Structures are given as C-alpha cells and as structure tokens.
Computed example of a mutant assay.
Amino acid sequence: MTRTPHARTQSEETVLRRAVCPGSFDPITNGHLDIIARAARLYDTVHVAVMINQSKRGLFPIEERIALIEEVTADLGNVEVESFHGLLVDFCKQRDIPAIVKGLRAVSDFDYELQMAQMNIGLSGVETLFVPTNPEYSFLSSSLVKEVAQWGGDISHLVPGPVLQALNAKLKQR
C-alpha cells in the first residue's frame, strides 16, 4: 500500500499534552510562577485556571489577576489563562484536559490535596500530579505576601515585578 506524504494514520497524529494549574492567584507569587513554568516544560499547553470564589472578596478583581498572570507567563509561550467557577473537573472536561498540576509546600498541603485528587479522579478520571515546591518558596502564599506588603515589608523577592507594582498601587488606594 502506498501512502501519500500528507496522509497520516491516527497513531501518527500529534496529541497535545495538556494540564491545568488552578488557584486563586490573588496575587500570583514566584512560588506559583515556578510551578507553572515547570508544568510548561512538561506539557504542550498549560491552562492557568483562576478560581472565582463568590464567598471571598479578593484584593485583585479576576480580570486584573488574569492580566497579571498573562504578563508574567508571556515568555513561556504555552500558557493560557482564564477564570472558572464551579468544579475544576468540569473545567477540565470542557477543555479535554486530563491532568491537574499542583504544587505542594508541606505535608499539610498533601493531606488536603490528596483528598481532592482522589475525589477528582473518582468524579471524572482527571489525574493530579503533585510537584514539590522549590524550597525557596516553601513558606510562600498569596495571603502572606499581602499581609507583609500591607505592613510595609519587602516582598520584592517573592513576587514578579509587575505584581509588586500592582500590589503597591492597590495598597496605596486603601
């Protein structure tokens, strides 16, 4: 059987490896960025899903969080950022994303995240991959960054430059 150079069998089709990095990212920190960048090296496309939590009022509106994440991940080239509300597995099913990538800072994170991972695979078959956080960021959270910044502490080594500028501007408005 002769095949034309352009004909491909299904097994030769390129399958995109896709994953999601979910979070509230209020604001994105260097710890978040490290996990996203590491996922971007492993997957063809990484979706950053910015969670909308109706019961919490964030410092940054969702649109501003998305814009900041897009700015600080632009050099990665394979990151897509959007918001979501509801179940993460529904977000994954709607976009045909088979994997969730989560950073783990400590054993206490693992206890909670393991339960979520088991629920997610049971609900939809979506796998969760845990990535150990760079020790440099093992203590870091958005809440801690906001609190330190609010009291005038130096957070310049904890967040990307554009986030530092936006956070300082936001805190001056208060």
Rank of each mutant, 00 (worst) to 15 (best):
S83T: 09
D111T: 13
A166I: 09
K170W: 03
A106I: 14
P61E: 14
L114M: 15
T2N: 14
N120Q: 12
D96E: 12
Q165M: 13
S24T: 10
D44R: 03
S138Q: 14
G86H: 06
A40F: 01
I97P: 00
A19V: 04
W151T: 08
T14I: 12
Q10S: 15
F91S: 01
T45N: 09
V131K: 02
K93G: 00
V48S: 00
A169V: 08
A99V: 07
D90E: 06
P160S: 10
N134G: 13
N53R: 08
S108A: 15
S24C: 08
D44T: 09
L164P: 01
K146A: 04
A106K: 14
A40I: 03
R18M: 05
M119K: 01
L171H: 01
D111Q: 15
L167F: 08
G161T: 03
M51Y: 10
W151S: 13
V163M: 00
F139C: 14
L144M: 15
Q94P: 04
A99Q: 04
D154G: 04
V126A: 00
L164T: 02
T133K: 07
V20Y: 03
D109T: 13
R65Q: 03
I66C: 05
G161N: 06
E64S: 06
Y43N: 00
E63Y: 10
S156M: 12
F130D: 05
C21N: 02
Q118S: 15
D34V: 03
G161W: 08
S83D: 11
I52R: 07
L104G: 06
K93M: 05
Q165Y: 13
M1S: 15
F60Q: 01
V46H: 00
V148F: 09
V79H: 02
V79I: 12
R41C: 08
P160C: 09
T133A: 14
A166S: 12
V79G: 00
A149F: 05
P160Q: 06
L76I: 10
E136T: 15
Q150L: 14
N134C: 13
V107A: 14
T4E: 14
E71F: 02
T2D: 15
K172D: 12
K102Y: 10
Q54S: 13
C92E: 01
Y112K: 11
T45V: 10
I121K: 11
R17V: 04
D44I: 07
P135S: 10
G153T: 09
L59K: 05
A149V: 10
V81Q: 02
A166V: 06
A166M: 07
V20H: 02
K93N: 07
V126G: 00
R18S: 04
G31N: 08
G153Y: 07
V79Q: 00
L144D: 12
G58V: 04
F60L: 01
L171V: 02
V79S: 01
S55G: 06
D90K: 01
Y137E: 11
Q150F: 14
I121F: 12
L76A: 11
R8M: 13
R65G: 01
A99D: 04
F139M: 15
V89T: 10
E13D: 12
Q150G: 14
S11P: 02
V131E: 07
R57K: 15
T29I: 07
L104Y: 12
R3Y: 11
Y137A: 12
G103D: 02
